[in-house]
Amino acid sequence: MRLSTVILPIHRWSEGQKTWRQAEDLGFHAAYTYDHLSWRSFRDRPWFGALPTLTAAATVTERMRLGTLVTSPNFRHPVTLAKELISLDDISDGRVTLGIGAGGNGFDATVLGQEAWTPRERADRFAEFVPLLDRLLTEDAVTERGTFYSADEARNVGGCVQRPRLPFAVAATGPRGLRLAARHGQAWVTTGDPKLYETGTPEQSVEAVAGQLDKLGKACAEIGRDAAELDKILLTGFTPEQNTVLGSLDAFVDFAGRHQELGFTELVIHWPIPDSVFAADQAVFEKIATEAVAQLG
């Protein structure tokens, strides 16, 4: 079991860089950030761009992996995203993981002036976005005409430091997204079942996540892939235990152990932010960071 963190891009870099350095010092496997233009309760607070933040983080860290949780098609295009990712992979010396999902109905869905896409439209776009991005990150020149996304002699000569490209961690729970994870992913990401977030029980949540894992296994089997090849990542903070998981080391180890038994290989916890939905005791958080993995074995 690996333990990682999410650092929201809410601080000017003169302050924010200290958190990324500290995350590496605490021994986190990876530090991710949200790829949004704004997010929920932080909409009226400072919020900086994900890829510039990760680029800066790459220059003040040496070992820790870096990534998005998650990028989506809401305001991205595969051609420009690929160029930025290849640059980031180079600057970080091959430490980047791209968390990628279909997006949702939040601020990002309408900020460019468009109507929010329906779930089917999001799935349709995601089904084009991921394969094209895969090609752009592995081929020197790509031409493709799609319904939503196209490329005309898009050049990425040299490609990624990581070969054949940087890894994709695909966030998905529906059948089409799970098939994309099975075909293109090196990891799969879930936040649990959103229907259980406020009114469900921990037992119901574990059962729901086990069902998601089962569906992922079936999607892999359909294409002859062993689901064990994919890392399984749980982004915490969105399950019924969200108010207690970071309450103590014992509570976290109990939570993590249940999910480790299901087959998860990486848990991601949010760096504490006072006066927010991610408020937590910093001392307890650091104790979890430094001691939990050893207790899990």
Rank of each mutant, 00 (worst) to 15 (best):
A23I: 04
P240E: 09
G99Y: 01
R135L: 05
A109T: 02
P194G: 10
D35N: 07
T33M: 04
G200H: 10
Y34H: 12
D281F: 04
R95D: 04
D152T: 06
Q295Y: 00
L196W: 12
P9S: 05
R122E: 06
R145W: 09
G257K: 09
V60W: 00
H270T: 10
T290N: 02
L296Y: 03
A182G: 11
M1A: 11
D140S: 13
A50F: 09
G237T: 02
D152L: 08
A228M: 01
G185I: 06
V157G: 00
F75L: 08
A289D: 11
A151M: 07
P131W: 07
L235N: 12
I91F: 13
T19F: 11
D44C: 00
P240S: 02
T244R: 10
G113N: 11
R179G: 01
L37I: 05
T191F: 14
A228P: 03
L178A: 05
A219M: 04
P240R: 00
E198V: 05
T201G: 08
T244I: 13
G224Q: 00
A289P: 07
P167N: 04
A210G: 08
G49A: 15
L51G: 12
G224S: 09
R125D: 06
G200M: 10
A23V: 00
V157H: 04
T80I: 13
R40W: 14
A127D: 15
R145N: 10
G237P: 11
R95M: 07
G257D: 10
C160G: 07
S14Y: 02
G263D: 12
R40S: 14
A30F: 01
G103R: 12
I91C: 01
L249Y: 05
A187P: 06
F238K: 00
P202N: 13
E15H: 08
S87Y: 05
R225Q: 13
H36Q: 13
R40Y: 13
T290S: 10
D44H: 13
P131S: 01
L133T: 12
D254M: 00
V130N: 02
G217Y: 01
Q295V: 06
I86M: 04
